[in-house]
């Protein structure tokens, strides 16, 4: 048993290392000198240059971009959880004619990538006067088929008895959903929170097309200052990448601690 457990750990350490290699390299690059990076792809650092981080922060003017990114990512995430939970509940629990059609329509909204829908969307947002505005960056993203589908899949497994018991206690559908059913699928809500926040935080294309003023940049657009006319300042770019990754990394670490409530019975026995 002990050796089996050890083997699993060794295997997982190797797998983790393989997944982490690119980030190890990002960190190494962020500490190198500018010329050193261009002349060797070595993992060894000749001289640690922590000042890259300070310079990167100042060059990109990140404080304002952090705020922009945060406002949009938080709003979209909360909006998506609300609209998705409601629609997912209807698709899983309310019997109505045309339910399957609505479900297929929801899934169909996932097929065409945003990169292709961008032309009609841009025309629409220009007509609304929403270019360079928060509402233009938030409102088109407030509903998403992914979240609706996710909640539907988790709601269908919640035992009916829970809802029936709540109904006997006189609770209506609305309060049953939020007080009884929703808490049962908290892991799904947590997952959607992390995924949506990360996707919004890392979104570059939307900001590139829907904004054109320097005030309305997000952290990803902020990285473009390191691409100078004839070369890229890789050391500062990578330092900046690490700086802007910290919020999403913290979100995941905190989130997963809450997510895994510690099922000690399932999986392999050690």
């Amino acid at each position: 048993m002990k050796t089996k457990r050890l083997l699993i750990h060794i295997l997982l350490v190797i797998i983790s290392f393989l997944f982490l290699i690119p980030f190890i390299w990002i960190i190494i690059t962020s500490l190198k000198g500018r010329v050193e990076v261009l002349t060797s792809y070595s993992f060894l650092i000749k001289q640690f240059r922590f000042e890259n981080y300070v310079n990167a922060w100042e060059a990109a003017n990140f404080a304002w971009q952090f705020l922009n990114s945060m406002i949009v990512a938080v709003s979209v995430t909360i909006g998506q959880i609300l609209t998705s939970a409601l629609a997912g509940y209807a698709l899983a629990r309310i019997n109505f004619r045309g339910r399957k059609v609505v479900f297929m329509i929801v899934l169909s909204t996932l097929i065409i990538p945003f990169h292709i829908l961008i032309v009609p969307l841009f025309v629409m947002l220009s007509k609304f006067g929403w270019i360079n505005t928060y509402q233009g960056l938030i409102i088109p993203m407030v509903a998403n088929g992914f979240g609706i589908f996710l909640f539907r899949q988790f709601f269908i497994k919640v035992p009916w008895e829970l809802e029936e018991a709540a109904a006997i206690d006189g609770a209506g559908r609305w309060s049953t959903l939020w007080r009884v059913v929703f808490p049962q699928v908290r892991p799904a809500a947590g997952t959607l929170f992390v995924f949506t926040f990360v996707a919004e935080w890392n979104n570059l294309f939307k900001w590139l097309i829907f904004t054109n003023s320097t005030d309305m940049r997000n952290v990803q657009l902020g990285l473009s200052v390191f691409q100078e006319q004839f070369s890229t300042n890789y050391v500062q770019l990578m330092a900046a990448v690490i700086i802007i990754t910290i919020p999403t990394l913290l979100l995941f670490i905190v989130g997963q601690k809450k997510l895994i409530q510690g099922i000690s019975l399932g999986g392999v026995k050690g």
Binding site: T83, L86, V142, A143
Partner: peptide, 8 residues
């Protein structure tokens, strides 16, 4: 369904 479907 209203909110999600109208945004979509």
């Amino acid at each position: 369904l209203g909110p999600a479907m109208s945004f979509l």
